[in-house]
Design a protein around this nucleic acid. Structure first.
Lengths: 144, 144
DNA sequence: TGGCAATACATAGCAGTACTATGTATAATA
DNA sequence: TATTATACATAGTACTGCTATGTATTGCCA
């Protein structure tokens, strides 16, 4: 059974603001975030989903349908490998583990993120003076 | 004439490391970065390209072929509007100006970026202890 | 005066892919 | 016995980003 379609509403309700992250940003985040979570220790799909929710304070709501393809892609790329395990209760789980290549990839993703983040901060900082720190409509400071 | 295909190499050479930002991250950056640059003041394609290079210290190398579609999309979405102008020398330029909706969108993009950035920082900070601050292979700290 | 680089904008066309919707299955719980 | 939570998987397509390519003018240098 897939999450979302109904479930998401419930969890998102009480978070500071239902920010709802756009497609592109979600896509840009998935690889570094999954690799980083796996770098904390081996894990499996469902647990990763919960960890993402936890780390983001409920702001990021990934569906299982979007996570598994990411995991498969990472495996095809050699950044993670997987093994099946069985809990005492009999439930099967596929555990993922980050490889050496995966750690290198993670380091590279961080470098990229940093480069972009610094660029954005640089251009935003100038704007911030007129805005109230974070966003909000901005009272048209232009003279042109 | 389109940039890149040869040009990029030249500019990228002396930057700290040719980071080369991946597709997804570039896609996630384009809207907030263009809107922010226009929020500094009205501008046009070629100048925006140079401003991106400048702001990123040469790390981000956008081509004109990818910028113009972004500009057109922003205009279709009502986040910017445009006007033709002519320089003294006779060269025509299309100036873009961020609209009120565009400023709201920019604020929202910043909120999203912040949410995601904080999530990544949270999970990365734990990893950083074992790594050398930024990236580099990481000496396998796991006990499992 | 010829040629190249820089400036300036535009888009066809397709390759690539992210996600929704949907499926299966078991354990726990009410 | 019905529902929720746990657990994984993928077909199919809707979407879109970018490369490659086109046009045109100005300025510079040899």
């Amino acid at each position: 059974m897939a999450t979302r379609g109904d479930g998401a509403r419930e969890y998102g309700r009480d978070s500071p603001g239902p920010v709802s992250i756009n497609k592109d940003l979600v896509a840009a985040t998935s690889t570094p975030l999954v690799l980083a979570i796996l770098a904390e220790g081996d894990s499996y799909g469902y647990a990763i989903l919960k960890r993402v929710r936890e780390l983001s304070g409920g702001e990021l709501e990934w569906t299982d349908g979007m996570l598994y393809p990411v995991l498969h892609r990472l495996e095809r790329s050699g950044f993670v490998d997987s093994r099946w395990e069985k809990t005492e209760s009999g439930r099967r789980r596929k555990y993922y583990r980050v490889t050496k290549d995966g750690r290198e990839q993670l380091a590279d993703e961080r470098r990229q993120w940093r480069a972009v983040d610094e660029t954005l901060r640089r251009v935003w900082s100038a704007l911030t003076e007129s805005a109230g720190g974070d966003g909000s409509p901005v009272p048209l400071p232009q003279r042109s």
